[in-house]
Design a binder for these strands. Structure first.
Length: 201
DNA sequence: CCCTGATTCGC
DNA sequence: GCGAATCAGG
């Protein structure tokens, strides 16, 4: 394979979108991530965005400014300290249900609510089918306890414990093809609407 | 171990 | 110009 214009275009596009070299290589086919990185450097578009350590920031791509003519336009943005919405990902937090079962979590741990008071809101599903919940416990007892860095596309990203304390890690079991969670957690994460009791707001 | 990008250097 | 090997790091 060679770097045809089309391929280079796709490379540029994907790179600017924050795609990783390996992802780009996969999309292009016939090249390795090394080849992609090498090309990226040769093209001189190394740092994707101003900040070097800036994390992949998907450009919303406002709109192609026609820009027929705009000689010296200074954008005197009077600094608008916009409050970041900070959207939370769909990350259901495993909830401890008071049952007779003992130590559902790996090693004996402090109560799961030690932190101060905040404790992030838990948006989604609370009512999980008993069996799914049981399976969930099993999985958590054997959790690999991965840290954020250790997560990959193939590790279960189900959070366990309290993010505000050290008692926090990710399941880490092999994910179920495509899904972000392992089989057990897919079970509690993706529930049919029907089985979800309507909570009267 | 999984992954990331950066750099080098023979081709 | 190309990209595998290597490096440095999360």
């Amino acid at each position: 394979m060679s770097w045809t214009e089309e391929r280079v275009e796709l490379l540029k596009k994907m790179w600017s979108e924050g795609q990783s070299a390996s992802q780009i290589a996969k999309a292009l086919g016939g090249v390795t991530r090394n080849a992609v990185i090498g090309k990226v450097h040769r093209l001189g578009l190394s740092n994707r965005t101003g900040g070097a350590g800036a994390p992949p920031k998907p450009e919303p791509k406002p709109a192609e400014a026609p820009l027929t003519e705009a000689p010296k336009m200074e954008a005197p943005k009077a600094a608008a300290p916009v409050a970041e919405p900070e959207i939370e990902m769909e990350a259901p937090k495993p909830r401890e249900t008071v049952t007779s079962v003992k130590i559902p979590v790996p090693a004996a741990r402090k109560p799961i609510v030690p932190a101060g008071q905040p404790l992030p809101p838990q948006p989604s599903a609370n009512e999980v089918s008993p069996e799914a919940l049981a399976t969930q416990r099993e999985a958590e007892m054997k959790a690999r306890r991965l840290t954020l860095m250790e997560l990959t596309e193939r590790t279960c990203k189900w959070p366990i414990g309290d993010p505000a304390t050290d008692d926090f890690w990710f399941c880490g079991h092999p994910v179920q093809a495509g899904k972000p969670y392992c089989e057990a957690h897919v079970g509690v994460a993706f529930q049919p609407m029907s089985s979800r009791r309507d909570r009267r707001r």
